[in-house]
């Protein structure tokens, strides 16, 4: 008995089992898993853990105090407005880039990606100058205060979320067969009918995906918005700036609770965008 137990231990010791397991799992898998755990999973858990050290009534009180609620309103409503404006003009831009020809089209097409590549601090700096009362564009609107107001925050959000709709709609429009449109025209549809009955339903999932991506990006934006805003509570203070202000006052709990609200929003929007993309592929094999 003892001998067989000894033998058993020899061939299946925990260390041998562990080595066997490591032998099966490849090095890339170990590296990927380790970095995802340390860089993504652990930090996310840390935010929730810190928020939950408070009791629920305190969390609720901090998350819904009047400055925070007005910051959410400014952030989410302005971001949604910016995303919808880009939904409209982004679709138009994608259409123009796919279907029309004009000089310097390739340059214009490349310019669309600038907000992805330009550091946001530079975007905030130049937008606040251009849209200030003495700026190139602000000078045309002397009565409207654009820079250092909520309008300016909206402009910054439009800038940073501009490429999303264009880049999601463009490939769908390229794949759209002209035959279908021509068939519709031959069957007697006028151009409005062709657009609303044939083209629009096909590109709608892509438009919504682009709007959702842009909205999610605009909600989290900090670099360009903090520079163009005056950051006054109840006026143009956005949630990410409020987090920074709380951190500067060493109010880690306050910062974490508002950070948790934004983090939950990001997680929900990731899931929502996944569903939109699945919906967009519903006609694919």
């Amino acid at each position: 008995m003892t001998l067989s137990a000894h033998d058993y231990g020899k061939s299946r010791s925990p260390i041998a089992l562990l080595l066997q397991l490591i032998g099966k799992v490849s090095i890339p898998a170990v590296v990927a898993l380790a970095i995802i755990s340390v860089m993504l999973f652990l930090p996310t858990v840390a935010v929730f853990q810190k928020a939950l050290t408070e009791n629920w009534s305190d969390i609720w009180r901090i998350a819904t105090d009047s400055v925070a609620v007005s910051a959410y309103e400014v952030t989410f409503v302005t971001a949604l407005g910016a995303a919808c404006i880009n939904g409209l003009f982004g679709t138009l831009l994608a259409w123009v880039l796919v279907r029309h020809d004009f000089p310097l089209k390739r340059v214009v097409d490349a310019l669309i990606d600038i907000p992805f590549a330009l550091p946001t601090a530079v975007a905030g700096l130049t937008l606040s100058t251009v849209y200030s009362p003495n700026g190139w564009i602000g000078a045309f609107f002397p009565d409207a205060k654009i820079s250092f107001s909520r309008l300016g925050v909206g402009i910054a959000m439009i800038f940073i979320s501009l490429p999303f709709v264009v880049r999601t709609v463009q490939p769908i429009l390229m794949d759209l067969e002209k035959d279908i449109e021509e068939a519709a025209t031959c069957l007697g549809a006028n151009r409005w009918q062709v657009f609303f009955r044939v083209i629009f339903p096909t590109i709608l999932p892509a438009i919504l995906t682009g709007v959702a991506l842009g909205f999610s990006r605009a909600v989290g934006e900090y670099g360009s918005t903090v520079i163009i805003a005056s950051n006054l509570p109840y006026e143009d203070l956005i949630a990410p700036v409020l987090i920074i202000q709380r951190l500067e006052q060493y109010d880690y709990t306050g910062a974490t609770v508002i950070g948790t609200v934004l983090l939950l929003f990001s997680l929900v929007s990731l899931i929502g965008i996944n569903f939109l993309q699945v919906w967009g592929k519903r006609y694919e094999a």
């Binding site: 930090p43 810190k50 670099g223 987090i243």
Partner: peptide, 30 residues
């Protein structure tokens, strides 16, 4: 699917919250 979604987290999260995460892990009281 979960790993693929969480991989996109740095794109969707506010950079301020990303900074906050680092403070909560490696800061003095982290």
């Amino acid at each position: 699917a979960i790993v693929l979604s969480i991989l996109d987290l740095p794109f969707s999260i506010s950079p301020v919250v990303a900074g906050l995460m680092i403070v909560l892990l490696y800061g003095r009281n982290g």
